[in-house]
């Protein structure tokens, strides 16, 4: 039997403080080689801060961290030579053309210029940007810039790819193209670590994830396991109009496994949403709209924190 491979990232009680404020407040996790690992959490949860520490550009305040068995405090350049980093906001060089952005970046890894050029052309194809090779960066759309940033992160064939909100701000089509590219990398065995506040993204891309809030880990597991543990199979969403939701909620006693009242709607957690809807109408309550859907990580988050993931 194969032994369990050693993790490529190990964080133990990782803390990052800015003055007195703990942006990351003692989080621990491991990432196995080839795994696709996600940090899911709302704004300000500490996702980017964690990513910067893992990316060996931000010194931790306390705790232990090892990336590829090396301590980022001592071996920053060594670790970074094996990483691909997609930061939350693009920092492509707007003064250079698309292909040159890849070339200068490849040189930072000490790669010979010939190899960098060949690799740049491969990556332009991978990112579907061949016909933009000579364009200015500012002339690219948001989705193209993001693809170029991902291509840039791959110039050194990284073992670990760190993606900080890779698809935020993109339209659905652009997101799907990106997801497809990330899938392919995953198939090739690249370890992915990504942050997101889109639950569908986490469900699509992550083998395993941690839900982070206020710098701490609230839960950990595969998307399916988290949903199983913290939510029901289905969710019934009913709306009675914003004034009446709260009032109606009082009359839903005994309906579903659990009920969440949000300002604009009521969520009824149950394994059979349609059946709950029938029971609600039997009580003489007639929602303006109703919808039955599968449980998602959004529901997990709501359950764990009592707050919505996207405000």
């Amino acid at each position: 039997m194969a032994t369990v491979p050693a993790p490529v990232i190990t964080a133990t009680n990782l803390v990052k403080k800015y003055k007195d404020f703990a942006a990351v407040d003692g989080i621990s996790f491991e990432v196995a080689p080839g795994e696709s690992f996600g940090l899911l959490g709302p704004n300000g949860a500490g996702k980017s801060t964690t990513m910067r520490m893992v990316g060996a550009v931000s010194t931790r305040t306390s705790g232990d961290l090892s990336v590829l068995d090396l301590d980022p405090n001592q071996f920053g350049p060594e670790i970074r030579s094996q990483l691909g980093v997609v930061p939350q906001s693009d920092n492509l060089d707007a003064e250079l053309r698309v292909r040159d952005n890849l070339i200068v970046y490849g040189r930072y890894f000490g790669l010979p210029i010939g190899r960098v050029k060949a690799r740049a052309d491969e990556l332009l194809a991978f990112a579907q940007l061949e016909d933009k090779a000579k364009s200015k960066v500012d002339d690219l759309s948001g989705g193209m810039k993001r693809r170029l940033t991902i291509a840039r992160a791959l110039i050194n064939d990284p073992r670990i790819l760190l993606l900080d909100e890779p698809t935020t701000g993109l339209d659905p089509q652009a997101r799907h193209i990106l997801w497809d590219r990330l899938f392919r990398l995953k198939e090739q065995g690249t370890t992915l670590v990504l942050t997101t506040h889109y639950m569908d993204e986490a469900e699509q891309l992550c083998d395993r994830l941690v839900v982070v809030d206020k710098g701490t880990i609230m839960a950990e597991g595969s998307p399916a396991a988290l949903i199983r543990e913290y939510s029901s199979r289905e969710v019934l969403e009913v709306r009675f109009g914003s004034e009446k939701n709260a009032e109606v909620a009082g009359r839903l006693e005994g309906i579903g496994e659990r009920v969440e009242v949000l300002p604009d709607r009521i969520l009824v957690y149950s394994d059979n949403g349609e059946a709950e809807l029938v029971r609600i109408t039997e009580r003489g309550l007639h929602p303006i709209t109703s919808l039955v859907r599968r449980s998602s990580l959004e529901d997990v988050f709501l359950r764990l924190t009592g707050r919505s993931l996207i405000e």
Binding site: V8, P33, L68, D69, L70, F75, P77, E78, I79, R80, S81, Q82, D93, E95, L96, D100, I103, V104, R107, Y108, F109, G110, N156, R159
Partner: peptide
């Protein structure tokens, strides 16, 4: 992975400044 990392940083540690200069020349 660690061995790859140790050898991967040899050139950047030595020539990193020149790579930045190269970038500046392209700009």
């Amino acid at each position: 992975g660690a061995e790859h990392a140790l050898s991967g940083a040899v050139r950047p540690r030595r020539f990193g400044g020149w790579y930045v200069a190269e970038h500046r020349f392209r700009v």
